[in-house]
Nucleic acid binder design. Structure first.
Lengths: 164, 164
DNA sequence: CGTCCGTTGTTCAAATTTGTACTCAAGTGT
DNA sequence: ACACTTGAGTACAAATTTGAACAACGGACG
């Protein structure tokens, strides 16, 4: 029904800024974490999530969801972290299938060593570049976008291209 | 000098929203592009960039920079696109080292077929979730962040963690 | 109970990304 | 012309991600 409504200049500007900002930020953060403590940003997020969880442990699936990664991807990463002694697996007795990933003391220690530098960088590159008002607008707007994406698994383009 | 200044709630909210939004968006967009036209989001961006360039061609390095990818990563992707007939390479006669990637007619055709659905999705998931004011704040703020990151190759954390 | 359906975490191969090393030329200064 | 430094694109191996296939359960229901 609706012929393609292209983005106008303002919309394009926002979209491009968003994409570019993420790429640039990610690159810097990842690089710094690797250099300083030998963790990828993904690994850092895993540790950070665990550190905030009760008993410092989460089930694989929850964790995967929390860091927005696939199950198999998380299996791999937890494998790496486990090998590095930063995390350990624990089986649940009430549900044989369940596996908990738990942050070890070494993991916690490393996280505490990594956090200051990481946070400083986030602040420098992201937080401090935005005014408080912009920050709030961004949090509100993207928060709403996230809400929409999370709920409806796929309103989007269900039958969008059913010609070919 | 400065002891770690952690993020306050508002800052955390913004940062998390930003990270989550990108992951969510990227996943959806990538999936849709693959489903509809068999392109990854990166490949789409490559084609889109080329389509907007004079003569529909760009040098490898420029293109790599434009889509924020490493040189070797771009070599790989261009290889894929070339094999699919969507792009072709052209050598420059004035500079033997230079290689141009050019969008072929098929590439252009595919891009035109892909664009409507892609744009519709960007609009639905991103643009329409934000108010015009939020959109502008986001464009301004992130634009500023990008500017900062682009100019100084690395003000950040030069000598930040030189203890360990 | 036994059956069927949806979950959970893993495995495995293929696709992609990363990072480094390399090859050739341009450009510079001598 | 001759080193010398840098830049462009590629090659390649190692690391990571993806996606489908699997094995093993829980849970609901007849």
């Amino acid at each position: 029904m609706d012929r393609p409504r292209w983005l106008n200049e303002e919309e394009k500007r926002a979209w491009n800024a968003f994409i570019a900002a993420h790429a640039l930020l990610y690159q810097r953060l990842d690089q710094q974490l690797k250099r300083d403590v030998g963790l990828s940003h993904l690994q850092y997020m895993v540790l950070a999530r665990l550190s905030g969880a009760p008993d410092r442990e989460l089930r694989m699936a929850e964790l995967a969801d929390a860091v927005q990664n696939s199950k198999s991807g998380l299996t791999y990463q937890i494998g790496q972290l486990e090998q590095a002694g930063l995390v350990c697996r624990r089986n649940c007795q009430s549900d044989v299938r369940a596996v908990y990933a738990r942050l070890t003391d070494e993991g916690m220690a490393l996280l505490e060593r990594a956090a200051p530098g990481h946070v400083a960088m986030v602040r420098e590159l992201f937080i401090d570049a935005l005014t408080p008002a912009q920050l709030q607008a961004l949090a509100d707007g993207l928060g709403e976008a996230n809400r929409r994406m999370r709920e409806c698994g796929g309103t989007a383009t269900h039958e969008f291209e059913r010609r070919k």
